[in-house]
Design a protein around this nucleic acid. Sequence first.
DNA 1: CTGAAAGCGCTTACAG
DNA 2: CTGAAAGCGCTTACAG
Lengths: 331, 331
Amino acid sequence: MSQPKIYDIAGAAGVSLATVSRVLNHPEKVKKETRERVLRIIREKGYKPNANARGLASRRSTTVAIVVPKLTRASVAEMIQGVSDSAQKYGYTIRLFVNDDPTRAKDFWAEVIASSVDGILFLNDEMTQEVYELVKNTPVPVLFINSVAKGEQFGSVGIDYQGCAYQITEEMIRRGNKDILFVSNERVYSVNILMEKGYHAAMVANGLEPKIIYSSGELAVNEKFFSEYLDHHVPEVAMLVRDSMAISFMNSAIRKGIKVPDQLQVIGFQNTRYALLANPKLTCVEIPIYEIGNQAMEVLTKLMKEGLTVDSDNPHLLVDYKIIWRETTRN
Amino acid sequence: MSQPKIYDIAGAAGVSLATVSRVLNHPEKVKKETRERVLRIIREKGYKPNANARGLASRRSTTVAIVVPKLTRASVAEMIQGVSDSAQKYGYTIRLFVNDDPTRAKDFWAEVIASSVDGILFLNDEMTQEVYELVKNTPVPVLFINSVAKGEQFGSVGIDYQGCAYQITEEMIRRGNKDILFVSNERVYSVNILMEKGYHAAMVANGLEPKIIYSSGELAVNEKFFSEYLDHHVPEVAMLVRDSMAISFMNSAIRKGIKVPDQLQVIGFQNTRYALLANPKLTCVEIPIYEIGNQAMEVLTKLMKEGLTVDSDNPHLLVDYKIIWRETTRN
DNA sequence: CTGAAAGCGCTTACAG
DNA sequence: CTGAAAGCGCTTACAG
């Protein structure tokens, strides 16, 4: 009961293997009747070409790699779902590579390349010189997801992080708020830096003093830190780089009897399900992470088709974001 | 600047390709000096064997498939992280297959097999006869994750869903509660059925009347439904099959001025980050989903090594769960 | 439009 | 312990 091979199909159809292969890869080169006969047998036997053999012979594997630091953030899963849906549409299959250890970077990247994928989608928060070199010497197209590649040499798909932070800050200023706090993450993620820049620029442009604090990514640490901060000062508005951080901040405030949104307004970036499960519901800048993954795979498909590598003139696609006003802000 | 091939290594080391291959696959068969020389060159050149060629020649790809219906649930991402960490330990690489369309089941499964993985980790909520047949005829080991396979024919890794629901129900009864509501999902997931059974058994065993309602998986629908339900009746305890549902239920109650946990106690299953971001913090039965993924890959490794297929005597591993008491319940 | 043949980059009996 | 050779299951120029 083992899987049928191309020989079996050829035999059953009374043609050579070359013809079966052509039916699959260049159907227009095969006479209609032959093609249909072969296709029927392929369907009957449930034949699928062996991916390894095909990849080896054609040097095309119709496989792409998704490279991520870790999966525990819900947003990464959504992004992959976006990639997956688009990949399926184009007949690509996904290899998943997870590595959070910078010391393994080189070996890890070699492994990705050895898996002979046709292209790589790279979700990478911190771009080091070493990674830069690795990517530069990659023989297949690499596209960065949700982060802007240093030096703009590589293609990327994301949103205008700086612009969205600027826009929402400006809007809150327009609504009469002056004391606006920006809370970022201790770890240096390029997207956070961009959002911080946008916030900073909007404050300065309006003659206000930016106030930026950095917190941990860990829930328990955050709560303590936020609680202490709020003992000293309650801003009019707090913007936090992640939904989960925003909700922690809000909960810390509510436990102290601070009214949201009357005394404190809270804004998060991302719009995960957390935002809707919060009470009150969180106002967010929605980062369409599914869409980003989906578009990224779409763009990668083109790069692969055109045989573009990272040296070529690469696209920087910005997906639309939007602001979702809910219960943690007021007009 | 293309990747070095095995020929390049052989040439540089002054040996045949067979020897290089042996150094990689059966190092004990190669003389120490030769081995070390070859290894040094491999390291210098950053050589990684081409995965397709290796897979084709050896019929072992050191690749496993993770098959999931969708990725948008945070728990799936954690599970995959667990798999990934264990896979890396054993040198396996991951192919990710996502399909939520039952009509494509057969074709989809053929694709998974054609990718010539050495084993399959299958996260599957609803086990149909068709899927059953497909899995039965699979030439490599298949292990079910987080769901019990029908007829116990296939191996699985999960937790004792029935037992944990029984246990927490019994504990809440011991604490003097009688009016305990169980809220499940409209969709027929095997794990939900098991939890429902456990709850039901505990209620009956204690002479209490089980009350079970079914809700949607969608947030907005749930909120409306829960709100209406609470207008008619507020139970002493509500247990919901997912954290997110539990939090929706709780928020609906709080908006009506119902005190949690004084008037209503709420319990969720899973213990995602949602539980900690809720206010008050949610009491949960923790389902160690990372651990489940991790152990599953561990078990699969053994199955692959022993060449066991689904016909063999397969293991059913139960990972430990625990109950995490937080602020939505009282003693 | 179709077939025979070479080749993709490896692994693994088989000799020695 | 090591090498020469066959073969894994495909694809793709090259002839015809």
